[in-house]
Amino acid sequence: MKDSELLVLKVLRTPWARQQFLLHWLRSHWADILGHTAADHSQPYRLENGTLYVHTDNPMWSNQLHMMQGKLLGQLNRQLVPALQGRKRILREMKFYHGIIQEEIQPREDKGPFMPKVDPSRRCPVCGVPLIGEEEICSACRREQVQTLRREIRKQLVLRPWLRYEDCRELVKCDRITFTDVKAVLGEWALNRALDPKATAQEKAFAVLLETGLRPKELQEETIVRTLEKARRSRYYVPARRK
């Protein structure tokens, strides 16, 4: 990163503003990092809590970039080394989603650093603090809304672990990315419980319902055993070391 860009990062006060700047930087340098071919089919969409969400225009590119995630994370964090400020890495995870990229792709030419503007006349409708840039709600209140949404999605999945995104959307106004992420986190937690030797039959059934999307009346003991055994093998499998 350039010295001018590092200076901008230092003066930005809120986590939301720093994330927006880093997202702008990643979009501006995306082709230089990935190469023009991959950049023509993908676009950084959102940066939140160390997770970079990327949209692609083809499932093949989602799969290919997912397979390269480890390499990409190392490369991206090396590019952001001057901005780490004592942290080991800024980006911890990348998530890829196939879908139409509706946002305008940032031009590749460097037009200088991005500086969010504060308009004192525009205030958060919830808490009243001045808004930064194009914010409709301040970062703190937005964070609380996101957490509330995630809790509601989790509640629905606990009650109905077989829910798909289309079903959940009829109960909770949510987007696919948030639903998928909440379900993945809950699924990981449920599998950990189910694979415990002391797990109850109910905990095992819940994990399998969440994993397979089957309804309770469709669930068979054989399916529970097979699903959990597959999960156990995938967790404890150690690939042979190359010689």
Rank of each mutant, 00 (worst) to 15 (best):
K2N: 12
D3L: 07
D3A: 01
S4G: 01
E5K: 05
L6R: 09
L7H: 07
K10D: 12
K10H: 12
K10T: 03
L12G: 06
T14F: 08
P15K: 01
H24E: 13
W25Y: 15
H29D: 03
W30K: 06
W30M: 06
L34W: 05
L34D: 04
A39T: 15
D40V: 01
D40W: 02
Y45A: 07
R46N: 14
L47T: 02
Y53W: 13
V54W: 06
H55G: 04
H55N: 05
N58A: 15
N58P: 07
M60N: 13
W61L: 10
S62Y: 00
N63V: 10
Q64G: 01
H66M: 10
H66P: 09
Q69A: 12
Q69T: 12
K71H: 14
L72D: 01
L73N: 04
Q75L: 14
Q75D: 03
Q75E: 05
L76Y: 03
R78Y: 14
V81S: 13
V81C: 07
R87D: 11
K88G: 03
R89L: 02
R89D: 07
E93Y: 07
E93P: 01
K95N: 09
H98D: 12
H98K: 00
H98Y: 03
I100D: 08
E104C: 10
E104Y: 04
E109W: 02
E109S: 11
P113C: 10
P113F: 06
P113V: 15
M115Q: 08
K117P: 04
S121V: 12
S121W: 04
R122V: 09
C124Y: 05
C124H: 13
C124T: 05
C124E: 02
V126T: 15
C127G: 05
V129L: 11
V129E: 11
V129T: 15
P130G: 10
E136V: 03
E136S: 09
I137E: 04
C138W: 02
A140R: 05
C141H: 00
E144C: 00
E144V: 11
E144K: 00
L149P: 01
R151E: 14
E152C: 03
K155F: 06
Q156K: 14
Q156E: 15
V158E: 14
R160Q: 12
P161L: 10
P161F: 07
W162K: 02
W162S: 08
L163E: 00
R164N: 13
D167V: 01
C168P: 06
E170T: 12
V172H: 00
K173V: 06
C174D: 10
D175A: 15
I177W: 12
I177E: 12
D181P: 02
D181W: 00
K183W: 03
A184S: 14
G187Q: 07
G187T: 09
A190C: 01
R193H: 08
R193L: 11
A194W: 00
D196E: 09
D196R: 02
D196T: 03
A205N: 08
A205W: 09
V208L: 10
L214A: 04
L214C: 11
L219T: 06
L219K: 00
E222S: 08
T223L: 04
E229L: 13
K230R: 15
A231L: 02
R232I: 07
R233W: 11
R233V: 05
R235Y: 10
V238K: 13
V238Y: 01
R241P: 09
R241F: 09
R242I: 10
